[in-house]
Amino acid sequence: MKQFEYKVENMQIQLNNIEFNVTITEKLNSLGKEGWELSGVNGTIYYFKREISS
């Protein structure tokens, strides 16, 4: 059975739209390289999960 770990990130970034998009993209790509997959968003709260290797 697959097992997962979870991470919650509060991403409150106050920039103009272009800088916001670049900053969020960089942050999401960084987490993706660590194996985190975005699984949900609720306002400024981003939920991630990644599979735990047995």
Rank of each mutant, 00 (worst) to 15 (best):
K27M: 06
V22H: 10
Y47L: 13
T25S: 15
N29S: 11
T23A: 15
E37S: 04
L15E: 13
N10P: 02
T25E: 13
L31R: 08
G32R: 09
G43N: 02
N42A: 06
E5V: 08
E51D: 04
Q3I: 04
E5Y: 09
F48M: 08
S39T: 12
N16L: 07
E51I: 10
E37W: 00
L38P: 07
T23N: 02
E5G: 05
N16R: 11
E51G: 07
Q3M: 10
E34V: 03
S30C: 00
G35H: 05
S30P: 00
V22W: 08
T25Q: 15
K7L: 15
E51T: 05
V8Y: 00
N21F: 07
I18R: 12
E51N: 04
G35A: 09
E26K: 15
N29Q: 09
F4E: 04
S53P: 09
Q14P: 00
G35E: 06
Q3H: 11
E5S: 08
Y6L: 06
T23H: 06
S39I: 05
I52T: 11
V8K: 10
E5W: 04
L15V: 09
E5F: 07
T44Q: 07
I13C: 03
K49V: 01
Y6T: 05
Y46Q: 06
S54K: 14
F48L: 09
E9A: 13
L15I: 00
N29P: 03
N16C: 08
T44V: 06
Q3L: 07
V8M: 10
L38D: 08
E19N: 05
S30I: 00
G35K: 03
N42M: 09
Q12S: 13
K33D: 12
I45F: 09
T23I: 01
T25Y: 11
R50T: 03
W36A: 01
M1S: 11
M11I: 15
I45A: 08
G40M: 00
K33A: 14
G40P: 01
E51K: 14
E9G: 01
S54H: 12
V41T: 11
G32K: 11
T23C: 05
E34S: 08
L28T: 11
T44A: 08
V22D: 14
S53A: 10
K27S: 04
E51P: 05
G35R: 10
F48S: 08
F4V: 04
F48H: 07
L28K: 10
V8C: 01
M11T: 06
S54G: 15
N17G: 01
S30R: 08
E5H: 02
G35M: 04
I18F: 12
W36K: 04
I18C: 03
G35P: 07
Q12E: 15
K7M: 13
V8G: 01
G32N: 12
V22F: 10
M1P: 04
N42K: 08
E19Y: 05
L15H: 02
N29I: 02
E26F: 07
S30W: 01
G40Q: 02
M1I: 05
N29T: 02
T25K: 14
